[in-house]
Simulated assay, not measured.
Amino acid sequence: MKKSQIIAIVIGVAAIAILFSLPRVVVDNDEGAAQITDSEEPTSSNPADMHLGTVDESMAAEIASLKGKMEAEDNQENFATFADSIAELYLEIGKFDSAAYFFELAAEKINSLERLEKTGTAYYEAYTFALNEQKIAFLAEKTRSYLNQVLEKDPKRLDLKTKVAMTYVSSSNPMQGITMLREVLEAEPTNEDALFNMGILSMQSGQYKRAADRFEELVKYHPNNLQGQFYLAVSYFESKQNNKAKKQFEQVKDMTTDPMVLSSVDSYLERL
């Protein structure tokens, strides 16, 4: 579990709306969703221009050097190699939209399933952190554009189908995303990502008993999923199943030594 996500949980249940790839979704009683907006500025056409000034000097110099070599390269394979190298550097520091931009440049030169997946996955990671409505829509569309090309060749990639599904949840057609997640679970009832995301969607709609059912199913098959174990406890807490919540929070404490996770758990236990 990302530490920033755990910290947010301590603030309260309202923070759930900004956790785990869903910072802009409100879900209705049928596990559907509606989009809401925020105040973040839209992305630039080249996010790397914005991010270059936020990296340390040595990495910025390395990126600038690679970019210069890339732009001067006529050989498509070499161009793609330089672009990939720049993208990997941005991945190291969590600048996913910049990474996606350069993975995309590489994929445009040398098209392969691996490059398409890298590009789509990077765009998806950027999407999960976006807050501005325009940026969300842009990154979601990019994600679908690249990951759907992989799915056309390999429809059994349920992990990618789950990512595509989540991009629809915050769109004008949220039920398409819900339907896709259900299709994933029909094909693989124990799918970890689909069960987790359906649980999160239920939490966001305030359906904590339904969320508890989803997370119970998740940890039944994936007991080491700390996120699922934690959110199961939160779901019990919010649905007033205090005895179950206390037992579950204690179980989470036994699963980790991370001080931020433990602080979050203790915060809930104090309220029981």
Score class of each variant (00 low, 15 high):
Ser171Thr: 13
Ala122His: 03
Gln229Thr: 14
Ala245Ile: 06
Leu272Phe: 08
Glu270Tyr: 00
Gly32Trp: 04
Asn225Val: 02
Val234His: 12
Tyr231Glu: 12
Glu125Arg: 14
Asp84Cys: 05
Tyr101Ala: 02
Ile136Tyr: 07
Leu105Asp: 01
Met255Ala: 05
Ile200Leu: 13
Ser202Cys: 11
Arg214Gln: 11
Glu270Gln: 11
Gly94Val: 01
Leu147Asp: 04
Tyr208Asp: 08
Ala83Gly: 05
Thr167Phe: 14
Ala87Arg: 03
Tyr127Gln: 05
Lys209Cys: 03
Phe249Cys: 00
Lys135Glu: 15
Phe138Gly: 01
Glu186Lys: 15
Leu226Pro: 04
Lys118Pro: 09
Ala14Trp: 13
Leu105Lys: 15
Gly120Asn: 08
Glu270Lys: 10
Met1Ile: 10
Asn78Gly: 00
Gly120Val: 06
Ala17Val: 08
Glu31Ser: 13
Phe237Asp: 10
Ala72His: 02
Glu57Gly: 02
Gly32Met: 09
Asp159Lys: 06
Leu218Tyr: 14
Asp30Trp: 08
Gln5Asp: 14
Ser98Gly: 09
Ala34Met: 09
Leu262Asp: 03
Ser267Gln: 00
Leu105Gln: 15
Tyr146Met: 03
Glu238Lys: 15
Leu272Pro: 04
Met260Pro: 01
Phe129Arg: 14
Ala130Tyr: 08
Ala64Met: 01
Ala137Cys: 01
Ile93Asp: 08
Ala106Thr: 06
Leu269Arg: 03
Arg144Ser: 02
Tyr146Arg: 04
Ala122Asn: 07
Ala64Ser: 14
Ser170Tyr: 10
Met175Arg: 15
Pro189Ile: 10
Ala187Tyr: 07
Gln251Ile: 04
Pro155Ser: 10
Ala106Leu: 06
Glu270Ala: 11
Thr190Asn: 08
Thr167Ala: 12
Glu104Asp: 15
Met1Lys: 09
Ala194Tyr: 05
Lys240Tyr: 14
Ile178Met: 13
Ile7Ser: 15
Tyr90Lys: 02
Thr143Ile: 01
Ala137Ser: 12
Met166Trp: 02
Lys118Tyr: 10
Ser85Gly: 06
Met180His: 06
Gly206Ser: 00
Lys244Thr: 01
Met50Asn: 07
